[in-house]
Amino acid sequence: MNTRKATVRTTMLLGTLCAALAATAVIALGMGFVRIPPAEALCVALGLPCGDDVSLRTAAIVNQIRLPRILSAAGTGFGLGAAGAVFQGVLLNPLADPFTLGVSSGAAFGAALCLVLGLTLFGAATLPLFAFIGAALTLAAVLWIARGDTSRSPSTLVLAGVITASILSAGLSFLKYMADERVSTLIFWLMGSFAGSGWTQAITVWAASLTGLFCCLWFARDLNVMSLGGRTAASLGVNPARVRLFLLMAASFVSAVCVASAGIIGFVGLVVPHLVRLLSGPDNRILLPASALAGAVLLLAADTLTRAVLPHEVPIGVLTALIGGPVFCWLFRKRHAGRDHA
């Protein structure tokens, strides 16, 4: 009976999040400088007959401007939410997110270097490629710093990540100094934005996010076992060091593509898993997809707010920090208040 209740609860949670994502996307399609009825915008986006009064201008706005941006925002939130849940599960740290190990900073450094140097070696794939190289090298540096700990314990990895992130922060400041006339473009990109998102960007971020999520879900059971401790996991046939390395690489790959897609967007990977864990519980088989969907809803709603509601478009990274910061403070105080009463 308990298993059946858990299955129903999981289905309701994931179904509700999917419905919320679909509803948010439809509402976002109709919102903007040019108001379009949501039903009409949805028909245009799906290629359904909408009557003879749909102009070419409306179709162009929906299919070439709004739909790619909506998909990019949702895909980036999807990836950041999943990556945040993976980092928190691997590092056994509720404060972990893609920034904890410096992975996002490494991706940002690689992408910023590409922008400053004006590199276009591989066309549109150059920026994501440099972002991933930066993230991969950062992860390698973290593992190298923590090499003295053969088990690569979470506390050692977090400390190594803090050291690496500090160095990369100085590197980003140096790139801003060297950017000269490109410094405004670099700073605006680092603050995060989906302005100008195209179909290539949307397809890339969704492909990376879905691939990363499925890879992490494959090891979700092992991640659950690892939460019991390294010795317990090893006794149950799980290799903590190997699983931890694979999951960190998968989450780093997703984070790198998301950073290359939209710049640095904080607090999504930190706050979303916290909120979802209150509803789903600690089981990563449920937590990972639920965090991904909730991240997509949150980031899409935030992008719609800054694009279509606010009088001036605010960089999405700034907006998520303004929203996520107070929410995280509330969650943090509530968590510790519960401990004190206990």
Rank of each mutant, 00 (worst) to 15 (best):
N2V: 08
A6E: 12
A6Q: 15
T7E: 09
V8S: 08
T10I: 12
T16E: 11
A19D: 10
L29Y: 01
M31T: 14
F33V: 10
R35M: 04
R35P: 03
P38T: 09
E40T: 12
L42W: 08
L42C: 05
L42D: 09
A45W: 11
G47K: 01
C50H: 04
C50Y: 07
V54I: 05
A60T: 02
V62R: 05
N63F: 06
R66V: 15
T76R: 14
G81F: 01
V86I: 15
G89V: 00
L92Y: 02
L92R: 08
L92A: 09
F99C: 11
A107H: 12
A112L: 09
L113C: 11
C114E: 10
L117T: 09
G118W: 04
F122M: 14
A125E: 00
A131T: 07
I133K: 01
A135H: 13
A135N: 12
A136I: 03
L137P: 00
V142G: 07
L143N: 07
I145Y: 03
I145V: 11
A146Q: 00
A146F: 07
R147Q: 09
G148N: 04
S153R: 08
S153W: 03
L159V: 05
A160V: 03
T164Y: 09
A165K: 13
S166W: 00
I167T: 14
S169I: 02
G171K: 07
L172R: 01
L172F: 02
S173R: 14
A179H: 01
D180I: 08
D180K: 11
V183E: 10
L186T: 04
I187M: 03
S193H: 09
A195V: 05
I203Y: 13
T204A: 11
A207K: 13
L210C: 12
D222N: 15
V225Q: 04
G230A: 06
A233F: 04
A233M: 10
A233C: 06
L236Q: 02
G237P: 10
N239G: 04
V243C: 05
R244C: 04
M249N: 12
A250C: 13
A251D: 09
A251S: 15
A251E: 14
A251L: 11
F253Q: 06
A256H: 06
A256M: 05
V257S: 11
V257Q: 10
C258P: 00
C258M: 13
A262F: 00
G266K: 01
P273Y: 00
S280M: 05
D283T: 06
D283P: 01
N284Y: 10
L287V: 07
A294V: 05
A296R: 08
A296F: 07
R307C: 04
L310Y: 02
P315M: 03
P315S: 14
L322N: 10
G325I: 08
V327R: 02
C329Y: 15
F332Y: 14
R333G: 01
H336G: 01
A337N: 08
D340S: 13
H341V: 10
